[in-house]
């Protein structure tokens, strides 16, 4: 039986109107995330991953604008919501954990005040109830002294603690959908392991649906059910995690794997991707990856390839993929 998608995005386009011209940051993204699914979005920085996360929450910063496309969440069209409806939805049903928590926590308010505010707004809890609930949440994310954290200000906490606080906060109102934007990139590997372990536990316990944004394929395998590879505002390959990991079709996906350091092969030359992601304002014509692609053929320069399905779930957008 096919489950309905909780989040369904069709042909999403986000453009930034700059003085120098129009930067096409997202150029027609379509994907569906089913309830209880963990979906990983992978790509280098500058590919539009974060903007994609922000556009779900209608938080695209100016001068960016969603110019086209549909975003449906639990049967609601998010693009036609009023400001008031958004306030009820954001933070309650859909929440986001940001890469750098310090930038999104209020530096002059204690953690307690910030958590109370959220619980009060969305769940109409009074101060006492909110405190109890918040302390429980802080404990659940593995913070040993929740009462101390409650009184602290963001700058008094370490990076790992702040990230936990962010996760506790984003889970506080029982969201249906969680967006995690590089939640562990800035952290030490030991703390990264703990945070990922925590996210996995929450996933198991609450059947949470999530979009996990990252550039590190090594952590995707353990956490995601499905993976989408993004390059310059376009999806280039999507599929179940096993499919992508066992059989990556797109040259870009292969290259991302090649960038990972293998523990048993020290001091070897890495088959890195040459060059870097071009700026969205100078999008190459055709397939955006073609200037860095070793397998490009004539047509890649002119036209973006159509979707090819190799299984019901595994799709690739490439004229010269690795299968056959």
């Amino acid at each position: 039986m096919q489950r309905e998608s909780l989040l369904e995005i069709k042909n999403l386009k986000v453009y930034f109107y700059l003085e120098e011209g129009i930067a096409r940051v997202l150029e027609g993204i379509s994907l569906g995330i089913k309830e209880g699914e963990f979906f990983a979005l992978v790509g280098e920085s500058g590919c539009g991953k974060t903007i994609f996360g922000l556009s779900i929450l209608n938080l695209v910063p100016a001068p960016g604008k969603i110019v086209e496309g549909e975003i449906n969440f639990a049967g609601k069209n998010l693009r036609s919501l009023s400001k008031k409806d958004w306030q009820a939805l954001r933070g309650k049903e859909i929440t986001m954990v940001f890469q750098e928590p310090l930038a999104f926590l209020n530096p002059v308010l204690s953690i307690g005040v910030q958590m109370t505010e959220m619980l009060n707004t969305h769940l109409k809890m009074n101060k006492r109830e909110a405190r109890l609930k918040a302390l429980e949440l802080l404990k659940n994310v593995g913070l040993a002294h929740p009462a101390l954290i409650w009184e602290s200000y963001p700058h008094q906490l370490s990076g790992g603690m702040r990230q936990r606080v962010m996760i506790a906060m984003s889970l506080s109102c029982g969201p249906k959908f969680l967006i995690l934007d590089e939640p562990t990139t800035a952290l030490d590997t030991t703390i990264q392991a703990q945070i990922l372990e925590l996210i996995l536990r929450i996933k198991k316990e609450t059947r949470l649906t999530a979009l996990f944004i990252t550039h590190d394929l090594a952590i995707v395998e353990g956490i995601a059910d499905k993976v989408a590879i993004m390059y310059l505002g376009k999806l280039v390959e999507t599929g179940k995690t096993e499919e992508i990991f066992q059989n990556p079709f797109h040259p870009y996906t292969r290259k991302l794997f090649a960038c990972l350091l293998e523990l048993n092969r020290p001091k070897t030359f890495l088959n890195a991707i040459p060059g870097q992601v071009p700026e969205a304002i100078n999008r190459p014509a055709g397939c955006p990856f073609h200037p860095r692609c070793e397998r490009k053929i004539e047509i890649c320069v002119k036209e973006f390839p159509p979707e090819t399905e190799s299984s019901e779930t595994h799709r690739v957008w490439c004229y010269n993929p690795f299968y056959r």
Binding site: H145, M161, T189, Q192, A193, L200, L217, A218, E221, F257
Partner: peptide, 23 residues
């Protein structure tokens, strides 16, 4: 050992790190 057990790599499906708390 704790540090090494937290290295993510392809084929490793869990993230268990032996540390109990961050603080």
């Amino acid at each position: 050992q704790t540090l090494f057990s937290s290295i993510p790599f392809i084929g490793k499906k869990t993230f268990i790190s032996q540390t109990v708390t961050v603080e």
